[in-house]
Design a protein around this nucleic acid. Structure first.
Length: 733
DNA sequence: CAGTCCCAATTTTTT
DNA sequence: ATTGGGACTG
């Protein structure tokens, strides 16, 4: 089919048309990997006559899956509903709903998000004799369990691995967590991968059914696959079957979540008959950006060397600005953005940073200037307290064994049922193996309780029964509405924290709208709850016309922008402090920087501050080592936003060089002025790009002091006095 | 049982 | 500074 192949370059075409079998496509940043994946699926459908239901495409976000589906649909001319195009987790959930009863999970199982999972860990810790004070706390245990699961390790495996006191405890908690989880008819995120794998590997009828059904498997972002996902793929694909993996080892940034870069690096070892195709032509960025990124990432040892190239011109080099603090940094970012837009027209832009905490100063600056911005990430919508509270009612109706939701619903609003009562209910449920909601309806248990909790429980039970009826008669959105009305949740919000009540109510309204929309489009309650659990904030990010997007580097994976700002290029931030003692983690930080750089089509602006407010105190910082890994010829240091459009800077003189770095440092004696030698209007100064000019104005004091200089050719320029590379030529008379 | 006060933590978070 | 959990008290 002509349109499937016509506009592809040779390696892309080879990847799309490669015969079935293990195929690894090493797709450098911006080399068209999504294009290859969608075309290959289209190719299978049209040229190989593959049935849509025989293809499974795995992505890392729901959004990516949906985008891929619609692109395939466009290519082949039919909707492609039957293609399995999901995230790993959604695919796993789907298979679990179908086959999970074999391992004790009914189709109505609920998905535990990290929050739920943590409360289950807490609960198990409390039930454990030595669960009082654990190093790392409950969160540490939850992470350890998750990590074990992502490595495919069983509780026994954890104990066997190290066998220390901590591992023993961990193993016991893990074991108890698992038993309880099954009793609750629940699966956590890791289970959505682990359990389908187990089903395929241990139940021949499931394996045969699935392998008969799914004959082609394609995986996106393969560099961030963890061992459990890898095992899932191997189980799904079977020996010698069709598997296409696309990824870029240099963009592997989820090591801390269990992703293992070696899985992609060792693809050929794992699949000896594998075909490997490398795509190195970049269609996204201009030459100097690509050069800077390539040279920087070459400092990593654990990688596969490659050389990206582009047919595009050199473009402008990445720009670096040495900011004073996070406020100055934000100002530079905002001013540059305004200037870039004024000179080169509008275009999408993003400010990327390592940690969410960095967004605040940037947001404030954007707001102050009335620049439209959107912050991506942060607390996920479906993880917000009020949203989870509200959904707890629906989850409880959906899965009467869900103690976690019962607890939540019982406490929001508080109804006089506390820990003691709950422990009795839980014990009774555990003992009888029946769903908690059944226990709640049990007269013997209720009778044995003190009158206050007994009456409260009776009222609660009635509410839930009412919800069940409402759900059956009018659907789940009405039931949700009823839950909020009848539970007294809304009034409780009001008097708890009056300042927050409005925000929370807004979120509840948004939730209700989402629920209603879902229901009206025929989505079942189960599907809705699943979506809510598997939805990420990035899935919701919509393009706000003309808004700069603020987000973490992790969130930027897979995206591209005309203009990219990378803020906070400081030791301790990027690379992050927690990575400094581990070479592997340091390499991951470098990849994170690489991901950031390669998001840009046209403009890269890098900033570092000399110090910034962290928590409550001001800390000094050093510029990131990664900055000095960018070749000098591909990095332009500027002292002010205006310099982005100044005449091309004079070549740097040897005097500017520092012994260690590639980034030009400001020589101390020329480093602006201190309080004793304030520049005087009328004096002459030299700027590295604008030449000699006359100081015509001073504003602000101390570190905020700005100097306005009139240059014969460049006109008026304003600099932060302490940062601009100005040297004195002649004092005012 | 629930509100209040204190202490500790505070990287990233596709799902 | 902020937030959330745990201990403590009424």
């Amino acid at each position: 089919m002509a349109d499937i192949l016509s506009d592809l370059n040779p390696p892309q075409r080879e990847a799309v048309t490669a015969p079935p079998g293990p195929l690894l496509v090493l797709a450098g940043a911006g080399s068209g990997k999504t294009r290859v994946l969608t075309r290959r699926i289209a190719w299978m459908l049209t040229e190989l006559g593959a049935h849509p239901g025989s293809i499974a495409g795995v992505t890392f976000t729901n959004k990516a899956a949906e985008e891929m589906r619609s692109r395939v649909a466009t290519l082949v001319g039919f909707p492609g509903r039957a293609i399995y195009l999901h995230t790993f987790h959604a695919l796993g959930a789907r298979l679990l709903r179908e086959f999970g009863s074999a391992i004790g999970l009914p189709p109505s199982f609920v998905i535990l998000d990290e929050d739920d999972s943590l409360s289950l860990v807490r609960d198990r810790l409390k039930a454990h004799p030595r669960g009082g004070d654990v190093p790392g706390g409950p969160e540490g245990i939850r992470e350890a369990i998750s990590l074990a699961k992502s490595r495919g390790e069983s509780p026994a495996g954890v104990r066997a691995r190290e066998g220390g006191i901590y591992e023993d405890l961990l193993s016991e908690i893990y074991d108890s967590y698992e038993k309880t989880r099954v009793r609750l008819s629940a699966a956590d995120f890791d289970d959505l991968i682990l359990l389908p794998t187990r089903l395929i590997n241990e139940y021949p009828e499931v394996r045969d059914e699935l392998r008969d059904r799914i004959r082609h498997v394609l995986v996106d972002e393969y560099q961030d696959t963890n061992p459990a996902q890898y095992a899932f793929l191997k189980a799904l694909v079977g020996p010698g079957r069709d598997l296409t993996c696309v990824g870029d080892p240099d963009q592997s940034i989820y090591r801390w979540r269990g992703a293992d870069i070696r899985i992609i690096l060792e693809f050929e070892r794992n699949f000896p008959d594998a075909k490997v195709i490398t795509m190195e032509q970049n269609y996204r960025s201009t030459g100097l950006i690509l050069e800077a990124a390539s040279a920087m990432i070459a400092h990593n040892r654990e990688r596969r060397p490659k050389k990206l190239w582009t047919a595009a011109g050199a473009g402008r080099p990445p720009v670096f600005y040495q900011a004073l603090d996070e406020i100055d940094e934000a100002r530079f970012v905002a001013e540059s953005l305004v200037l870039l837009r004024a000179h080169d027209g509008p275009g999408d832009a993003a400010v990327l940073y390592r940690t969410h905490a960095q967004s605040r100063a940037l947001e404030e600056e954007m707001a102050r200037r009335g620049l439209k911005y959107a912050v991506a990430g942060g607390i996920k919508f479906y993880a917000r307290r009020e949203v989870k509270d509200a959904l707890a009612y629906l989850r409880l109706v959906f899965n009467p064994a869900d103690i976690i939701s019962l607890k939540r619903a019982l406490a929001a609003p508080p109804r006089g049922v506390g820990e003691a009562t709950l422990a009795k209910i839980a014990a009774s449920a555990e003992e009888s193996g029946r769903p908690v909601m059944e226990i709640l309806a049990d007269p013997p248990l209720l009778g044995a309780l003190p009158s206050r909790p007994r009456q409260a429980l009776a009222g609660f039970l009635e509410l839930v029964r009412g919800l069940e009826r409402k759900l059956a008669s009018d659907g789940y959105s009405t039931a949700l509405d009823m839950a909020l009305e009848k539970s007294g949740y809304l009034p409780w919000l009001d008097d708890r924290k009056p300042g927050e009540a409005d925000d929370r109510k807004d979120n509840l309204r948004e939730l209700f709208a989402a629920v209603k929309t879902a229901e009206e489009s025929g989505i079942s309650l189960g599907e809705f709850l699943e979506r809510a659990a598997l939805m990420s904030e990035m899935d919701k990010l919509e393009d706000r016309e003309g808004a700069v997007i603020l987000m973490t580097l992790h969130n930027a994976k897979g995206l591209e922008f005309r203009r990219v700002f990378l803020a906070g290029l400081e030791e301790g931030l990027l690379p992050h402090a927690s990575s400094l003692d581990d070479p592997a983690e340091l390499e991951e930080e470098r990849r994170l920087f690489y991901v950031g750089l390669t998001r840009a089509r046209e403009t890269v602006v890098l900033t570092a501050a000399r110090g910034r407010r962290q928590y409550d105190a001001f800390r000094w910082s050093q510029n990131s080592r990664f900055l000095s890994e960018i070749p000098r010829a591909t990095l332009l240091e500027v002292g002010a936003p205006e310099a982005l459009y100044g005449e091309s800077p004079a070549p740097r003189s040897p005097a500017d060089e520092t012994p260690d770095g590639n980034v030009t440092r400001i020589p101390e004696e020329e480093n602006g002025w201190d309080d004793e030698s304030t520049p005087v209007p009328g004096s002459e100064v030299r700027h590295h790009s604008f030449g000699v000019g006359r100081v015509i104005g001073i504003s602000g004091r101390g570190p905020r002091m700005r100097v306005t200089v009139a240059f014969p050719r460049a006109g008026l320029k304003t600099f932060v006095a302490g940062l601009a590379r100005l040297s004195r030529v002649k004092e005012a008379a």
